[in-house]
Simulated scan of single mutants.
Amino acid sequence: MQVLDFKPKAIIFDLNGTMINDMEYHTKAWHSIITEDLGESNSYESVKKEMYGKNPEVLERIFGRNRFTPEEIISLSDEKEKRYQENYFPHLALIEGLDEFLKRAKNNGVSMAIGSAAILFNIDFVLDGLKIRSYFESIVSADDVEISKPHPESFLKAADALGVNPADCLVFEDAPKGVESAHNAGMKCIVLTTTHDLEEFAEYSNILGFIDNFKNPILTTLL
């Protein structure tokens, strides 16, 4: 078994693809809007590559600047979240082992926060739907930052809210841009292999390990 000698004072979780395995539903929601509502021919895989950051940023990466008015962006974003929640709700569940990991971390006095590019509407959907809000001392959403990942703002704000030095924080992420954000914040990271291939993370030196769920034995050495 791999042994991790890093003992974090705080843990910061990304949400989508990290705590819940839902990125497919976000991608499907955007893909349906793009192809069915807007009549574009973008492939599912091309949309999947742009699934990071805030909704307006996703639209800008796919369509370029000034394709939509601010009002249209709000309308498209609202419709996307509606479709995502309707389709994912029957499958809403924590990634295997996370419930016990959260309990163990709290019992060991490790502070926890969420640093996510999700809007608060979706974070609330998860935390209240799964009744896990009490584990987290701070929540940093897309609504709380000026610059999205890979900028470190999300994770630095979470660490500041917890009163913990960034170097003493451990981030759980599933996306290369999220790992890069943790690196830019001076934080170590463990990667969930839910949405991306291992080779996509080859350039990052802050990764302690890769896991497919929270029952992985390397996590027992963290706490």
Rank of each mutant, 00 (worst) to 15 (best):
M1S: 14
V3T: 15
L4G: 12
A10W: 06
I12M: 07
I20L: 10
I20C: 10
N21Q: 11
H26Q: 12
T27S: 07
A29P: 02
I34P: 10
S41Y: 10
S46W: 12
K49Q: 14
M51E: 10
P56C: 05
F63Q: 06
G64R: 11
N66G: 07
T69H: 14
S75T: 15
L76W: 09
L76C: 11
L76I: 13
D78H: 14
K80Q: 12
L92P: 04
A93S: 12
G97A: 01
E100P: 05
R104W: 11
R104H: 07
A105E: 06
V110W: 00
A118R: 02
A118N: 13
F125N: 12
G129Y: 00
K131P: 00
K131N: 15
K131I: 09
Y135T: 10
I139D: 00
D143M: 13
V145M: 01
P150N: 07
S154M: 09
K157W: 07
A158C: 08
D168C: 10
D174Y: 01
G178P: 03
V179F: 08
E180R: 14
A182Q: 08
N184W: 06
K188M: 06
C189I: 04
T194A: 01
T194W: 02
F201H: 02
Y204N: 02
Y204V: 03
S205D: 15
S205E: 12
S205C: 01
N206W: 03
F214G: 08
N216H: 08
I218M: 14
I218Y: 05
L219G: 02
L219H: 03
L219I: 04
T220K: 12
